[in-house]
């Protein structure tokens, strides 16, 4: 059987029948996108690897609850997002620093619950790595609230629709639109200095 020719959902069904090669193919397809999403959310390489691994294990061990009419990628990202955001929330509670309540849709509520995590607590080698890459965009993304980060990455990097993002994040469609709109605004402000002189955009 040509596993590479199978759709994600067909592979998921093969996995449910105990097919290990199908599972390997799914890991091969999604390890980088899922890992990147989680890494950019938690901003820690080792932790992101543990969480991404856990997301795959949970997905494969609970395939009986997967609805084949749903996109496998959305289901996997949903598991990964939940794990990552749970961690961020716990970390926030432990250190009394949370980047705004996840359900904060009004300006007042957002401001009342918002404390910027920024790069605090990151090891110097991680900071050096970010600098070495010269990746100001990554830094700008890292400064967003975790929910904004996930939403904007799912939209612009993974190309998911708003509806799919709402399902993945288990968040109302309107809230997702707000997240993405605000995330884009913040990113455009933070990256404004990269624009060429004289550019109006």
């Amino acid at each position: 059987m040509d596993y590479e020719a199978q759709t994600d959902e067909e592979l998921a069904q093969l996995c449910e029948g105990g097919d290990e090669r199908a599972a390997r193919e799914l890991v091969s397809r999604f390890e980088r996108p899922l890992f990147s999403l989680i890494r950019r959310t938690v901003r820690d390489q080792e932790l992101a690897e543990d969480l991404a691994q856990e997301a795959f294990v949970r997905a494969f061990n609970h395939l009986d609850s997967f609805d084949p009419s749903y996109q496998f990628s959305s289901w996997l990202f949903k598991i990964g997002h939940n794990l990552a955001i749970d961690h961020v929330r716990k970390k926030g509670l432990d250190t009394v620093s949370i980047e705004g309540a996840p359900d904060a849709v009004s300006q007042e509520r957002q401001e009342a619950t918002s404390i910027t995590l920024e790069a605090r607590g990151e090891r110097p080698d991680e900071v050096a790595e970010a600098r070495a890459l010269g990746d100001e965009i990554e830094e700008a993304i890292g400064e967003l609230r975790p929910e904004y980060r996930t939403a904007v990455m799912l939209r612009h990097i993974e190309g998911h629709s708003y509806r799919e993002i709402a399902e993945i994040m288990d968040t109302p469609l309107g809230t997702v639109k707000t997240y993405i709109h605000r995330a884009r605004g913040e990113l455009q402000d933070r990256l404004a200095h990269l624009r060429p002189e004289g550019s109006e955009a």
Partner: peptide
């Protein structure tokens, strides 16, 4: 990942 996966057969 695969070492922790228990694919139900």
């Amino acid at each position: 990942v695969m070492s922790r996966v228990d694919l139900a057969k």
